[in-house]
């Protein structure tokens, strides 16, 4: 059964964690468009804000500023009931670690449990989903009886259980061996093949490379994008550009750059200014 993918659009998305006595800006003016049916990997260093972005897309956190649209839903304005309906019918979430499954339910019942919020008529047969992720043979097993890879694939099936057009997965391949990782990626691909938009947070460049598009989040911003194996810088709405991390060793923060544009090819050249040039007189 094919589903219709759900697009995601972020414009100037800001999220601030308000802690006791101080605030932490987790996302700062993020602009991102994910097309329906697209498979996107969010990559970046720890603490860069990619999991926060995923939580915002899932409606688990409210944007502090900016706008975030998931399909027809403006998540910066949606109420609890709308978010509940959205999670019940349009998006699925695969959390990091072992928290996706109810330990005392079989694989099949875990999928069915995740479908309880979906109107009966729209429910995808649970066995089909297990089949999609290659778990049909383990339908009667509880999570504790599955391998770590099996549990993650089951988590993917549970995440996709609502039959919605968006699947959000947070580090679905962490702590898995290569074979298991492959199987999980295959499961995610299978979900994408059914028509869903798939957004995956991952540390693993290898996993990210398996998706058509990768978005690098650095310091709460979209720093770069990869398309078909090639990385691109992204110019933000404020004109800011994040340099790749490897350039920062030669051009540490505070370095003055001279920007030159080749009028013929249109290439931009960044060259650090000599120290004497900028020394104050």
């Amino acid at each position: 059964m094919r589903v219709t993918g759900v697009p995601v659009t972020c414009r100037g998305l800001v999220f601030i964690y308000r802690l006791d006595g101080y605030d932490v800006v987790a996302l700062s003016r993020v602009d991102l468009d994910i097309a329906a049916g697209e498979a996107v990997a969010l990559v970046g260093p720890s603490g860069s804000g990619k999991s926060t972005l995923l939580s915002l897309m899932a409606g688990l956190l409210r944007p502090s500023a900016g706008s975030l649209r998931v399909g027809d839903h403006d998540l910066s304005r949606a109420g609890d009931a709308e978010l509940q309906r959205m999670r019940a019918t349009e998006l699925g979430v695969v959390l990091q670690g072992d928290r996706n499954l109810i330990p005392y339910l079989s694989a099949l019942d875990n999928v069915r449990f995740a479908q309880r919020g979906v109107p009966r008529a729209r429910r995808v047969p649970a066995m089909d989903l297990l089949e999609t992720v290659g778990m049909s043979g383990a339908a009667a097993r509880t999570p504790g009886e599955l391998t770590p890879g099996g549990r993650q694939r089951l988590s993917v099936a549970v995440g996709a259980a609502v039959g919605g057009g968006l699947l959000l997965a947070d580090e679905p391949t962490s702590q898995l061996d290569a074979e298991a990782r492959e199987s999980v990626v295959a499961a995610l691909s299978a979900v994408r093949d059914r028509g869903s938009t798939v957004v995956v947070v991952t540390h693993d460049p290898g996993v990210a490379a398996r998706f058509g598009r990768s978005v690098t989040i650095r310091d709460g911003r979209v720093g770069a994008e990869g398309r078909r194996g090639e990385d691109f810088l992204v110019v933000g709405t404020d004109g800011a550009v994040h340099l790749p991390a490897e350039l920062l060793t030669d051009m540490p923060p505070g370095t003055l750059l001279r920007v030159r544009r080749d009028s013929g090819s249109g290439e931009l050249r960044l060259s650090p200014a000599e120290t004497a040039e900028v020394r104050p007189t």
């Binding site: 899932a58 019918t89 699925g92 919020g117």
Partner: peptide, 16 residues
């Protein structure tokens, strides 16, 4: 708590 969180995450209605 985690189980109940999952129920909410999966979009179960409040009464459910």
């Amino acid at each position: 708590g985690a189980e109940i969180g999952l129920a909410k995450l999966r979009g179960l209605r409040r009464r459910s």
